[in-house]
Amino acid sequence: MSEARSENSASNVAVFDTHPSDAIDAESPLHWSRQRGVIDAAAGEGQVTVVERPFLGHLILRGGAIVLDEAVRETLGVSLPGQPLGLNHDADGSRSVQWLSPDEWLVIVPAGEEFELENRLRAQLGDAHFAIVNASGGQTLLELSGEHAREVLMKSVTYDVHSHGLPVGKGVGTVFAKTSVNLRRPREDRFELVVRRSFADYCVRWLLDAGREYGLSVE
């Protein structure tokens, strides 16, 4: 058994596509709030906008930076952020790789791409010492943009969200409204909040309250 493992470790890892068939409706973490009208009722003038990006593919990569960098370049065409708190995107900005800790990175890709990517990464990495976990079902992404997006965040996180504290291409784990958030800045005019699925509803309600004075709306 151990011989078989060392010959072809990839084949001994149980992987499965977590996406159900199209026949089954997937519900976003904000489904309950939408159904109850909490979100619809809050349409403001739009000086701050929250856009939900549910069902994206989230993969956690763990291992050595050098071996993972090579595999991620090969499969995704993006280099692994070498510096702490780095956030790299591909050319069209829809796929990202983020530093989470010295041996841990978060890859976010468009919905449905994660299973194929995971398999390609596993094939590429072969017998290297690594781990890949599909975290797509456990977390979700909220985009925050608009003139007063920074002011809304200033009321919600302990981190300095000014451009000198959180410039484009940086992502940090920090405290958001007494819970945790992975706060990223992919562009000058946009913040991304990666939150736990079970806290997404709470986070959006917090944002609705914090953004009320700026006419925050949720799409």
């Binding site: 510096q83 702490p84 708190l85 302990t158 981190y159 940090v172 784990g173 405290v175």
Partner: peptide
Amino acid sequence: PYCDERREEEEF
């Protein structure tokens, strides 16, 4: 020492 910057105690 890993994030290479100062943070509030609340994160620790």
